[in-house]
Design a protein around this nucleic acid. Structure first.
Lengths: 152, 152
DNA sequence: GGCAATAAAGTTGTGCACAACTTAAAGGCG
DNA sequence: CGCCTTTAAGTTGTGCACAACTTTATTGCC
């Protein structure tokens, strides 16, 4: 990896110096690995993230999913329609609040859970890093994202 | 951030334990910050990445851009068409090899460079991390991506 | 109750990513 | 030379992300 001294001494930022490019690249590389594992199950990576939330607890509203995954209804509505068409989730208007839609697992959606339990370790195993190193990296990346989200 | 012990003791992986979700989230949070800066210039983040490569040296082929950014022609061809329509780049078939397309900067594209030099420090400044911490994180993320890319 | 303000989800349109495919130009080899 | 393989770029189709907008329901607040 290129490792020059500092961005500020150049007239234009260099690609290899940018943490942002590193994150963009790493995220896509990871997703590509997950795609190999998820495609046989009929899931995309964002769909898998929705399933992870549902496997923790259900039913949940679309806005709860949005808060957990940092996604808006413009992304989630069509994604959930596809998950429903695939038979993995159900959507029902809440009786308490007719504005809300409650997303719940179908039996097929629940059964997918067991097939995915080893996926994180399969992907992380390919990274060549120890569990501890990965956990430290994860916490740093979460912290970075959290700080950067709050404003510029 | 949630920091539980280990993935393997749960029946399903937990969202907050996943480095992959951290990277996915951090990448989108970063892109959102860049969007605020780039939108006034008429650039998207992937278009900005292409410009970064061109500001390092030009002309370059589409495949060279693809190798630097890990993007294929299916992504780059329409992106370059939009950059050309915006007046920032030119595309010309190579005389040496009629299969290749050489992408070069227009004067307008070259002038954008000066307007972007402070962007990385603006975004990184929002992260609350020191330059050294960011550089370490960047190198770890690049290493992670590099390892994960090679196969599962 | 009446009504403005807010909130939840959905729709529309644009621009990536990426798979699968097409077109056309080089290269290699008998 | 003819022909087969490889390579470069482009096209098509699907599924995110996200902005901007719409629709409908709920919540103040008088």
């Amino acid at each position: 990896m290129a490792s020059r001294s500092s961005t500020s001494e150049h007239s234009a930022p260099l690609l290899d110096e940018q943490i942002c490019f590193a994150l963009y690249n790493a995220s896509r590389a990871m997703t590509a690995r997950y795609r190999e594992l998820l495609e046989p199950l009929g899931l995309t990576y964002p769909q898998y993230l929705v399933m992870l939330v549902l496997w923790e607890s259900e039913p949940v509203t679309v806005s709860h999913l949005g808060a957990r995954l940092q996604l808006d209804s413009g992304t989630l509505s069509p994604l959930l329609r596809r998950l429903e068409a695939a038979g993995f989730v159900e959507r029902n208007r809440s009786a308490d609040d007719e504005r809300s839609v409650l997303v719940s697992l179908t039996p097929a959606g629940d059964e997918l859970r067991a097939q995915t339990t080893r996926f994180p370790e399969l992907v992380c195993g390919a990274s060549g890093l120890s569990i501890d190193a990965i956990e430290m990296l994860r916490d740093q990346v979460f912290a970075f994202a959290g700080n950067i989200r709050t404003s510029i």
